[in-house]
Structure formats: C-alpha cells, structure tokens
Simulated assay, not measured.
Amino acid sequence: MDMISDILLVAGSFGAAIYCFVLSNRLKRFTTLESGMGGAIAVLSAQVDDMTVALEKARSAANGSAESLEALTARGEAVARKLELLVASLHDLPDPAAASAAPTATEPPGADERRLRLVRRRSPRSALEAAE
C-alpha cells in the first residue's frame, strides 16, 4: 500500500511539474514584445496615443470653425437688421408717380396717407432648416 501511494505521489508531482513547465512557456510567449501579447499591447498603446493627438487636433479645428461660424452668423444678422431698417425706411418715402399727379376729385385729401403698407416678417428658422 505504501508503494502504491508513493507511485501516485510521484505521478502527481511529475504532472504538476509538467503543468508548471507548460504554464512557464505560455507566459514567456505571452510577454514577448515582438510577437506575443506584449507586442500587441505596445502597438495598441502607441495607436491610442496617436489617436489622442489626432482627436485634440480635430477638436481644436472644430472649435476654431465654430467660433468663425458664430462670428459670421452674428455679422449676417447685423446686416439683415440694417437691410430691414433700410427697407422699412423706403416705405416712408412718397410715391413719385402719386406725388406728381394732382389728387382727383373722387379721392379725399390725404388719401395717400391711408395707403396700405406691406409688412414682411421672417419665417421661423425651423421652416428654413426643414427646407435644407
């Protein structure tokens, strides 16, 4: 009985030694920088660094474009307000054809003061965005 237990003990320790040897070889292959997982991790780390730099460049370019677009939009809105004011002031001028012609007997005096005026309003932005 002692002999059987010794044989089983030797076989178990021999199996454990083989298992440790296989794990050691796998770990060496796993950590090699050229061909193993270590190399893959190093390559991925370098790619992450490159992508971080590219992302920062893209973010700064987008911020610059957004600021430029905001400035141009504000400038365009200011010009639109000036144009609206100029168009509104044109409505206050008398009509040259009506001013040169004498008022007729059927029109009461001051009839051109009661003339209809057109008021133009901007369409809402949502309608413009939907059209694009």
Rank of each mutant, 00 (worst) to 15 (best):
L8C: 03
L9C: 05
A11V: 05
S13M: 12
S13I: 10
F14K: 09
A16C: 07
A17M: 12
I18C: 07
I18V: 15
I18T: 10
Y19A: 14
V22G: 08
S24T: 12
S24N: 12
L33D: 06
L33G: 05
M37Q: 13
G38W: 00
G39F: 06
G39P: 01
G39H: 05
S45V: 05
Q47R: 15
D49E: 13
M51A: 11
V53S: 08
L55K: 04
K57M: 14
S60R: 13
S60T: 15
G64D: 11
S68D: 14
A71E: 08
L72N: 15
T73P: 00
A74R: 12
R75V: 05
L86G: 03
A88K: 09
S89T: 10
H91E: 12
L93A: 12
P94M: 02
P94A: 05
D95A: 06
D95P: 00
D95N: 14
P96W: 04
A97P: 00
A98L: 10
A101G: 01
T104P: 00
A105H: 03
T106W: 02
T106F: 01
P108Q: 06
P109K: 03
P109A: 13
G110K: 03
G110A: 08
D112R: 03
D112F: 00
R115F: 07
R117I: 15
L118A: 11
L118P: 00
L118D: 04
R120F: 13
R122K: 13
